[in-house]
């Protein structure tokens, strides 16, 4: 894996639902960031060192020289990032993580920040996608439908009453498993665990969010417990893992 550290310049910012959509221009136009990969983004002014660590973001969409990210403001870093004005430059490291595999037929599930890689996959490999289920807490961001290819088989679900969405969680209705479909999912821990309870573990792939030190395998800070003992580096071997390769008990127990 060859990674690069480049300057990214904020071009555009728009809010929708709980999300902020950020569009960056990158000096490296030749980058190809595949679905499921992420970047590490600086969330501070260049010569201030707080917050010190970069933040990992799944890529929402790419075009030559352009990069779209979907940010849920939660802590100091993300709040700093979503309040920048266009023109702001930050350091960006990428592409990071293993791309999601390209299967002949997939179902996609996304929630929270996990909407981003699902949409990137759908845009990149539209012909392979049997169905998509996206879960929200609150309204569907107005900018989202524009980023989804027309007549894609996408269902929106929301835990609150939201226009254009079914009320409930993505696991509230059966997920179609016919035609040997493989399921790729990214979202909050509760969603990934709920999916594990209802999906065959050899056809279910979950992409995990972790606090990361570096994002490219040199700090050994982020890990996903491996079934049968040991662990994976979430950033380097993942962040997507087949469900039967993960020790789900340790995944939830570790955190004190």
């Amino acid at each position: 894996m060859r990674l690069q550290q480049v300057r990214a310049r904020l071009l555009h910012r728009e809010e929708g639902g709980r999300y902020v959509h950020l569009v960056f221009a990158m000096e490296e136009a030749s980058w190809r960031i595949l679905p499921g990969q992420f970047v590490q983004l600086q969330v501070r002014d260049a010569e201030q060192y707080d917050p010190f660590l970069d933040r990992p973001f799944s890529v929402f969409w790419t075009e030559p020289g352009r990069l779209g990210l979907l940010v849920l403001p939660r802590g100091r870093g993300t709040r700093w990032l979503v309040s920048r004005d266009p023109g702001t430059e930050v350091s960006l490291i990428g592409p990071l993580g293993q791309p999601w595999p390209r299967f002949p037929r997939v179902g996609l599930v996304g929630g929270g920040s996990g909407i981003a890689p699902v949409v990137h996959y759908l845009r990149t490999y539209p012909d392979t996608v049997a169905w998509v289920r996206l879960g929200f807490r609150g309204d569907i961001p107005a900018f989202l439908p524009k980023r989804i290819p027309a007549s894609s088989p996408v269902e929106f679900w929301s835990e609150t009453d939201a226009p254009g969405a079914r009320r409930g969680r993505v696991t509230d209705a059966p997920l179609p498993l016919d035609d040997g479909v493989q399921i790729l999912a990214c979202g909050p821990p509760g969603m990934l665990t709920a999916l594990k309870e209802i999906l065959p573990s050899t056809r279910y792939y979950a992409s995990f969010e972790e606090v990361m030190g570096c994002g490219f395998g040199i700090c050994m800070g982020c890990l996903t417990p491996r079934a049968g003992g040991g662990h994976f580096r979430t950033c380097r071997e993942g962040p997507l893992f087949r469900a039967d390769q993960v020790d789900w008990t340790r995944l939830t127990q570790d955190v004190r």
Partner: peptide, 27 residues
């Protein structure tokens, strides 16, 4: 990286926590 006589698995997560102008690690 620090090497020991036999392989070591290290500590359970979380192993990293950000602090002001720095971080804490417990790899």
């Amino acid at each position: 990286k620090g090497l020991t006589l036999r392989p070591r698995e290290g500590n359970p997560r979380p192993r990293i926590a950000e602090t002001r102008c720095g971080l804490l690690n417990s790899i």
